[in-house]
């Protein structure tokens, strides 16, 4: 019998409404309120415990609440964690998202919740947590629990996830490949020509890749170069010849920082590129074409900017996923901040 632990707020926990929203978290054995319906719908699994917490307590003491809940769960066996459904209740939705995310990160078990598209928790957490598209209020409880537990049963039985559209949860920007039946009508060639025919005829068709909207970061203000502490970062795979950090030549997950203190240029034979995505000859012959240390030093000596940071930071860009690139950048940041770097020349190949 698989074990499931659930989370509900004070209202669904049966303590009370707004007046009990400051309720501190606690855990009970077995079911409470809607988790009874969840338990009834589960196959070969049972709800062993239910966590209850007031929405306001969670909202204003999130870290404290989460840490206490993680403490409750530490010694419990659990195959799946379910929060909600939260419908359109904003604080409850955000709480479900927070708890699910924390449980997933700490215990690595699958987490599920359900809420309405208007619930701010949906947008905030749909990337991290599988959130089923729920109704606007508790009158939809039966329906929302049904959809959610149907998927929970599948997950617990190890059956394949058919994707967010078929299962009924929010799109997360998480794309994986699937194999279709091996027949001509499913080949990319056939699909492409049929899609073209529909496009020509003005008939509806479904593109297999919907282009997401662009997500931009706020533009950093200009810096007076007299105050500029500049660091060089590169995705060209330029490394010391022995590649001491074993950075991969494609699909990199590793990066390195190497001292350029007292160097006026990057010497061939001391540095080289390990990038597999382009012809390395030119970069190996003169690494400054990849990381322009010689030119940057020249400007530094002229006094065009304040000073150059003592290290350059390097990885390989080809095939490297966005998530890995972001993680690597975030790992570099403390080193940069520590030295007061405020501007970066990032070179890509």
């Amino acid at each position: 019998m698989k074990k499931v632990i659930c989370y509900v707020n004070q209202f669904f926990g049966g303590i009370g409404g707004e007046d009990k929203a400051d309720q501190e978290p606690y855990i009970v054995e077995g079911v409470v309120g809607p988790t009874m319906a969840i338990n009834a719908a589960l196959k070969d699994a049972e709800v062993t415990h239910t966590v209850v917490c007031g929405d306001n307590f969670m909202g204003s003491n999130t870290e404290e609440a989460l840490s206490r809940i993680m403490g409750f769960l530490e010694d419990k066996e659990m195959d799946l964690f379910i929060a909600g459904p939260a419908f359109q209740a904003g604080r409850y939705g955000v709480a479900c998202g927070n708890v699910c995310k924390a449980v997933k990160e700490k215990f690595g078990v699958p987490v599920l919740t359900s809420m309405n598209g208007e619930n701010p928790g949906a947008d905030m957490f749909k990337k991290d947590v599988i959130i089923f598209k729920g109704g606007t209020g508790a009158v939809k409880m039966r329906q929302d629990v049904k959809v959610l537990t149907k998927f929970a049963n599948k997950l617990l039985a190890g059956e394949p996830n058919l994707g967010c559209e078929a299962e009924g949860y929010f799109e997360r920007g998480c794309r994986h490949e699937v194999f279709l039946e091996d027949i001509r009508e499913n080949t990319a060639a056939y699909r492409g020509v049929q899609m073209l025919k529909k496009k020509m005829a003005g008939e509806p068709y479904q593109t297999e890749l919907i282009i997401p909207e662009k997500d931009l970061v706020p533009i950093a203000p200009a810096i007076d170069l007299k105050d500029a502490v500049i660091a060089l970062v590169t995705t060209s795979g330029c490394v010391p010849v022995e590649n001491p950090d074993r950075i991969q030549s494609a699909s990199a997950t590793r990066w390195g920082r190497y001292s350029i203190k007292d160097m006026d240029r990057l010497e061939a034979g001391v540095f080289k590129t390990i990038h597999a995505g382009y012809d390395p000859a030119a970069g190996n012959a003169d690494p400054n074409v990849l990381v322009p240390l010689d030119a940057v030093r020249a400007y530094e000596k002229e006094g065009k900017f304040k000073r150059l940071h003592d290290y350059f930071y390097t990885t390989v860009g080809t095939g490297t996923t966005e998530a890995e690139a972001t993680r690597m950048a975030e790992e570099m940041i403390p080193y940069l901040q520590e030295d007061g770097v405020n501007a970066i020349i990032l070179g890509s190949t």
Binding site: G163, C164, E165, H176, E177, F179, L180, E181, A188, S251
Partner: peptide
């Protein structure tokens, strides 16, 4: 290994019976 290493595995030429889906 990654899919990258299947010989012509993504069969962009048109043999592929794979597609991508949102999960």
């Amino acid at each position: 290994m990654e899919d990258n290493n299947w010989f012509c595995g993504d069969h962009i030429s048109g043999f592929s019976v794979k597609t991508m889906r949102e999960f």
